[in-house]
């Protein structure tokens, strides 16, 4: 039953991130929306590997037998890769926003009209 709540939370997080990406004009708020969206996707991926009363996928002895009680390690590894990609994207976007603020003195995306004219 707990997985239903987790999936609903993932849907809510992705919806909030999409709204922030579409509606907000501030570029920093857009980056925050992207972070919330990515967190929702991570929650969705992690909940696929959920198992009731599961334990961490770490083998304790050489003759360890309880392999069936462990959770799925594959989504955790994929999310671990995804987090670092998110970090690089966020850092690059923030540096570009700093340069935009230096040149145009604004971070409002509606005031950046140099390209249109």
């Amino acid at each position: 039953m707990i997985i239903v709540y987790s999936l609903i939370a993932a849907v809510i997080l992705t919806a909030l991130g999409t709204y922030a990406l579409l509606a907000k004009d501030n570029l920093i708020k857009k980056i925050i929306g992207l972070g919330i969206f990515t967190d929702g996707i991570h929650l969705l991926l992690i909940s696929i590997g959920y198992k009731e009363e599961g334990i961490a996928p770490i083998i304790r002895d050489i003759n360890y037998q309880q392999l069936g009680a462990m959770v799925d390690p594959l989504p955790q590894a994929l999310v671990l890769t995804s987090i670092v990609i998110e970090l690089s994207i966020t850092a690059l976007a923030l540096v570009i926003i700093i340069q935009i603020h230096k040149k145009y003195k604004t971070i409002n995306s509606k005031h950046l009209r140099r390209l249109k004219e």
Binding site: I48, I58, P73, Q76
Partner: peptide
């Protein structure tokens, strides 16, 4: 979740790679 992939990773993690942490 696909039990075949999970079982393969969990059973072969210690033998093939020597790492106890499956992730």
């Amino acid at each position: 979740h696909n039990p075949d992939v999970k079982q393969y990773y969990l059973q072969n993690a210690l033998e093939k790679t020597g790492s106890a942490n499956a992730v």
